[in-house]
Amino acid sequence: MTEITAKPLPRLDGPEAPFWAGLREGEIRVQHCVACGTPRFPASRFCPECHSDRAEWRAVEPRGEVESHCTFHKCYFPGFVGDMPYTVIQVRLDCGLRFFSNIADGGRPATGQRVAAVFEPATADVVLLKFAPEDGA
């Protein structure tokens, strides 16, 4: 029963491991190309800009803007039944990378809303990247 009603969780042992480790420590770490400095996410072997294979995981500014959103009224995944309806947002961080996420505490945002990262524990091992309206925004 637990299996069916649980929310889906990310795996922590793949190429994105440094990202999830970063969230646990309150940082958004993404790959940066060592050759040209371009940040990228999800993880990939080569820089999509200059094709260098040298990359390092570094934190980016945990701030951005809500670009789009949608609200689920149909519960596709049983684990979310207690949250219905819930809103998914697309956030563009100031570094240019985008993440799908939620407003912490389940709010529904406006397009263009400035937001700051919230590091929200989901289990003992998993911290999710959520967002809240920026102070004063």
Binding site: K7, P8, S68, C70, F77, V88, F100
Partner: peptide, 22 residues
């Protein structure tokens, strides 16, 4: 992006349409 509840093809289409509407 399942941990955030974005779990169905309709979600991708909806988030694209919302952006188009805006």
């Amino acid at each position: 992006s399942p941990p955030y509840g974005l779990t169905a093809p309709a979600g991708g289409a909806a988030i694209a349409m919302q952006r188009y509407m805006a």
